[in-house]
Amino acid sequence: MITVHFISPKGERQTVDAKPGDSVLDVANRHDIDIEGACEGSMACSTCHVIVLDPWFDKLPDSREEEDDMLDLAFDLQETSRLGCQINLTEELDGIEFQLPRNTRNLLIG
């Protein structure tokens, strides 16, 4: 199992277990972490935006251009921002920490 830490905008920390290969969005949904994921992981929104805390960001594979384009739509964008649907957990990421942004923008709601 992989330990994952989520920190709310208010500083509340929630630690959960995940399986290798799980996406951060799937883990958050399974444990009732407040990450929307409006497009259900199809990378058509930015509602699963997370901020990867140091030193974990450098351990992740580089983001693709499509992810960067979606992140441009996110609130509270940081240098270490990523989409949770695009991060698949590995043993190397055991203990990873994510800060949840203050707000999200759902462009799928019309």
Rank of each mutant, 00 (worst) to 15 (best):
M1R: 11
I2K: 05
V4P: 09
V4T: 12
H5V: 15
F6R: 14
F6H: 11
F6D: 09
I7G: 08
K10Y: 02
G11I: 10
G11T: 15
Q14N: 12
V16A: 10
V16H: 08
V16L: 11
P20I: 05
D22I: 11
D22Y: 10
D22Q: 14
S23W: 00
V24C: 02
L25R: 09
L25Q: 03
D26A: 12
V27D: 01
A28T: 12
A28D: 03
N29R: 12
N29E: 01
R30Q: 13
D32M: 08
D34V: 09
I35Y: 01
E36L: 10
E40D: 12
G41F: 01
M43L: 09
C45S: 06
T47I: 05
C48Y: 00
H49W: 01
V52L: 01
V52P: 08
L53Y: 00
L53K: 15
L53W: 00
D54V: 03
D54M: 04
W56R: 08
W56I: 04
L60S: 11
D62N: 15
D62R: 11
R64N: 14
D68L: 14
L71T: 02
L71C: 06
D72T: 11
D72Q: 12
L73H: 04
A74Q: 12
D76F: 02
L77C: 09
T80L: 02
T80K: 03
L83S: 10
C85R: 09
T90I: 06
E91Q: 13
E91C: 00
E91R: 05
D94S: 13
I96G: 12
L100H: 07
L100A: 03
N103T: 11
T104N: 01
N106K: 09
N106E: 05
I109K: 06
